[in-house]
Design a protein around this nucleic acid. Sequence first.
DNA 1: TGAAACTATGTATAACATACAGAATTATGT
DNA 2: ACATAATTCTGTATGTTATACATAGTTTCA
Lengths: 253, 253
Amino acid sequence: MTNDSKEPDLQRSLTLLWSGRAEGRRGPRPQLTVEGIAQAAVRIADADGVKALSMQRIAAELGYSTMSIYNHIPSKDLLLEVVADVAAGQPPELDDTDDFRRAVRRWVAALWAGFQQRPWILHVSLGHAPIGPRQLAWLDQLLRPLLKAGLAGGEARAAALHLTAVVRGVAQISADMTSAHKTGDGIPHRESEVARALVELIDPRDYPALAAVYAAEAAAGPPEEEESLPGALSFGVDRFLDGVEAWVAAKAR
Amino acid sequence: MTNDSKEPDLQRSLTLLWSGRAEGRRGPRPQLTVEGIAQAAVRIADADGVKALSMQRIAAELGYSTMSIYNHIPSKDLLLEVVADVAAGQPPELDDTDDFRRAVRRWVAALWAGFQQRPWILHVSLGHAPIGPRQLAWLDQLLRPLLKAGLAGGEARAAALHLTAVVRGVAQISADMTSAHKTGDGIPHRESEVARALVELIDPRDYPALAAVYAAEAAAGPPEEEESLPGALSFGVDRFLDGVEAWVAAKAR
DNA sequence: TGAAACTATGTATAACATACAGAATTATGT
DNA sequence: ACATAATTCTGTATGTTATACATAGTTTCA
């Protein structure tokens, strides 16, 4: 591989993520590939969480020596970037005839489902904007309905950033996402459990608004989850889309 | 301390975060405190990033032996939870006379500024909803204008979750946040640099929307950042607030 | 036909979280 | 007053980790 040292960090990430195969290379045919390594890592993380991702474990999974991985990927941090991209998988195909709201909602639901299937992704920290092919495929898929709805380029980008951030952020915060034995430090408690424990700790004089909200919540009982999305995420996304719609309408006039 | 083993994870986190001092305790007076340990950790992370946070380093910073920390905090994961809370600091005091939009925007700006000052926070992964006193103080402060605007309890909670997630998410994705030498794996590249590098990689046939957006962006030149917030974050938050406002208005009618 | 570039491997090292076992110190029940 | 139990701090030990480095074999290019 030999894209060692020198290059600036970004270039290094990019050449790794978009590993363009060099044709005429000297040396033995590589038996391992960046893709293969990342896939093995995903398999391990799926099974035992992100804490279980060690170079040794990945190499063992592939049946090669630990150090052989370093011939293809210069560090674990870079590896994790590739893993995050591979784990993202393919974005949903959005029906082009759908109206923009439906399309965006389906995209959001798909991303949410992805985080449910691979909660460990939430524990590998993003270092920067999406730059891998699969992450960008997701982004591209989201941009389509946004552009079609009438947003300008920069606006669509901002909106996509917003939505991506929301889903990821809500997933991170939602307790029931990060199941315990997978992440090693996750806490598999549901919302209500947290609420119950907190009510005793928060003094309404220190946290008046919070206390009020929790009180109202307790009185109302547990919210019912209609669809595939939790109500809280749904509400936020819908309000955001309301705002986007209004904005587009105002621009058009 | 001796809140070892048994307790369920959530209880363990809570007693740690809200460390209610037991009065009549046997044994020597503790010289270390949970707070003090966390503050030392914050000092280190501020200086050298989250990668530099080791039990040994923290203990050294305090002038105690490594293992003494474990008398107060049962594991590094729990430590990080406390650190995340301590590092959050105090939320901004929001002017009660401000209208709801102004108040929320100020809250968002404050949180954003917080992430700029301590980008490493973005690299300690949240395991669950906010449960520490300082995190909850932030939440409470945000809930006030939302409730005052006319949202119901559950709606305000959802909106607050949404906004928190957005700011955190956008901060994580924004390249210029995570500076390299602090996080160890951050990449300090600005947006434009990423864009320039990507334009060569993405095939408009695979990523049509993305290519269109980047093309438009390149033609328009770099966006100008008016205020303390980056334009992309601003746009999303404003659209969201538009939607919330409309929602409240619709409910009132 | 080298020489250069590359891959896979084994060994080595330093850092790390944390288990465990004293020794010292305090509060509590007698 | 005294013994006991609980608790703190410390030192030592263990297993895991990322990764540097050297080596031997393999392929391509000059």
